[in-house]
Structures are given as structure tokens and as C-alpha cells.
Amino acid sequence: MLDEIDRQLLQSYQRDFPLVHDPFGEIGRCLGIEEDEVITRYQRLKDDGYISRIGPLLNHTKVGVSTLAAISVPAAMIDSTAGMINSYEEVNHNYLREHHYNFWFVVAAKDNERVDAVIQEIERKSGTDALVLPMVKSFYIDLGFKLWQSTQAD
């Protein structure tokens, strides 16, 4: 079970993680707990799978190009198609969704040529045409995901 301090540790440091010599000490001073406890709690939250990692989130428009794409595959081909799409290291997200277009994936690479080549290979191997849906404009204000309505950390 997560207590209020766990929730604050998860909620408040999705952005502006302290860029100082002792970031966990700094967090402890903000929350009124010892540095050791901050580290122990983060280790437990990581071991229990609540945290994927602590690190930089890259701006994909600055480090390369990427696009969302979708294809429609019959039910009998879902498993083999999942493996085929996942095998590309350029694919960083791949979701199965309940829709005629059932495979939704993001292809990211250093340039458009490589992104196009990966999509064309996936089209050829799956025998379908992909919907290619690059981002035209973002309306999203990146404040981190609001995990709880009630936490004092908001």
C-alpha cells in the first residue's frame, strides 16, 4: 500500500527533479524526512514496479523524428504481427486497441527516411496499408500526470 509520502514522492517529482549535488536530500528537506528514507522509499517503489525510472524525458522533436501509425490486422494474425512490429528497435510504443485499426505504434528514428522505411517494411510484412499520423501540433502542457486528486503534493 502507498502512504501519503509515497504518493508525494510519485506525484511531485515527475518534473523538476532536483538538479543539485544531493537531490534525495533536497527532496527530504521539502517533505520533512531524512535523505536515507527518500532513497529507501524510491528503491521500494522501483522494486515494486511503481516507477519505471528516474531520468530525462527527451523531446523527440529535437532528437529525431517520429510518427504514430496504425494498421488493421485480422484476429488470427495478431500474435505474429505483434512480434514482427516489436522486433523493430525504432518502435517504442505498440498498443493493441479495440478498433478496426487494431495495432497502434510509434516509430522513432534519426531521420524521415528511416521512419518511412520501417513503416513500409511493416506494411509489406503485414500486407496492409498503414495510417500514418505524425503529430502536426501539440496542445499538451507537460506537467506530469496527475495521479491523485487529493494528495497535498498537487
Binding site: 515527475q14 506530469g144 495521479l147
Partner: peptide, 25 residues
């Protein structure tokens, strides 16, 4: 620290923080 801060200012790094596993939460 100076180099990381510069990448944040340039926008190469969008933010530094923990990446929660939404599904687990």
C-alpha cells in the same frame, strides 16, 4: 549539472523526473 541544465533550457531534455508506471498505480 551545467550541461544538463543547458539541455533543459534548449529543450533537448523536456524534463527530468521519475517516470511512473501508470498501470501499476
Amino acid at each position: 549539472l551545467r550541461r544538463i541544465d543547458a539541455m533543459l533550457r534548449q529543450g533537448t531534455i523536456r524534463r527530468i523526473g521519475l517516470v511512473p508506471n501508470h498501470y501499476r498505480i
